[in-house]
């Protein structure tokens, strides 16, 4: 029931958001015109090489802009974790997908972006653990294994950020993101180490940041 309630609330938010956008469009009587398509690469994830060497993750995005105001956005990514600890080895791999839209509030610099966005995200991962060492003075040392399990998570994202054209057709973008888990991700016995696209599996609400480089496919530009 909670899932239904969250999902219906989310659908209502999205529907009303689109209605608000539509109202603005009607007020200006501006027809929707394709203004560009950007392909993005999440470069913030490359910091994992320094700070989370056990994790390899890659993410990209496609956004389709209309009138440099409204953007339909799709994001996707892959994450792989190989964690070798003294008392266990952990493996995980999974993918994530996000769909949503951005709204640009800039008027004077229409090719750049300052605005907000909403996303719905979904992740599917499989994880397992081996060589789990238990060290007991009474029972001695012994090893156990955790069989592979799959885990699905769905979450909602609200973001606020900027994108600027630093070279011709090349953009840098940064955004703060608030993520709210709608369902999944939690497991009382075998909690995922990290949910691809979402982050720390133990938290129901996450505030984070994204760093992207975009290439704008050069067509239909004024």
């Amino acid at each position: 029931m909670a899932i239904l309630r969250y999902t219906s609330s989310l659908i209502l938010i999205i529907v009303f958001s689109f209605q608000l956008l539509a109202q603005t469009t009607e007020e200006k009587k501006e027809p929707w015109k394709l203004s560009g398509i950007k392909a993005g690469l999440d470069v913030g994830r490359f910091s994992n090489f320094l700070f989370k060497p056990e994790q390899r993750s890659y993410a990209g995005s496609i956004d389709i802009g209309f009138n440099n105001k409204r953007y339909f956005v799709g994001e996707f990514g892959y994450s792989e974790i190989s964690l070798n600890r003294e008392n266990y080895d952990y493996r995980s791999n999974g993918t994530f997908y996000k769909l949503g839209f951005d709204y640009n509030m800039l008027k004077k610099v229409p090719t750049d972006f300052l605005g907000a966005g909403l996303r719905i995200g979904y992740s599917l991962l499989e994880h397992s653990a081996s060589s789990i060492l238990f060290n007991s003075s009474h029972w001695g040392n012994y090893y156990l294994e955790q069989q592979a399990e799959t885990n699905q998570t769905m979450w909602f994202e609200a973001s606020f950020g900027i994108k600027g054209e630093v070279l011709k057709n090349i953009y840098l973008g940064w955004s703060t993101v608030l993520k709210v888990r709608l369902y999944g991700g939690k497991d009382d016995s075998f909690q995922p180490y990290d949910i691809p696209g979402y982050g720390n599996a133990t938290k129901s609400i996450i505030i984070g940041a994204n760093y992207f480089i975009y290439y704008q496919i050069p067509f239909n530009r004024n």
Binding site: L50, V109, L114, G164, V166, A209
Partner: peptide, 20 residues
């Protein structure tokens, strides 16, 4: 305006969050 915008963008972009 655009220069300031880009400066802010670079400052923000150079900040990389990491977990302690």
């Amino acid at each position: 305006m655009k220069r300031i915008f880009r400066l802010v963008l670079f400052i923000l972009f150079s900040f990389i969050a990491y977990n302690c």
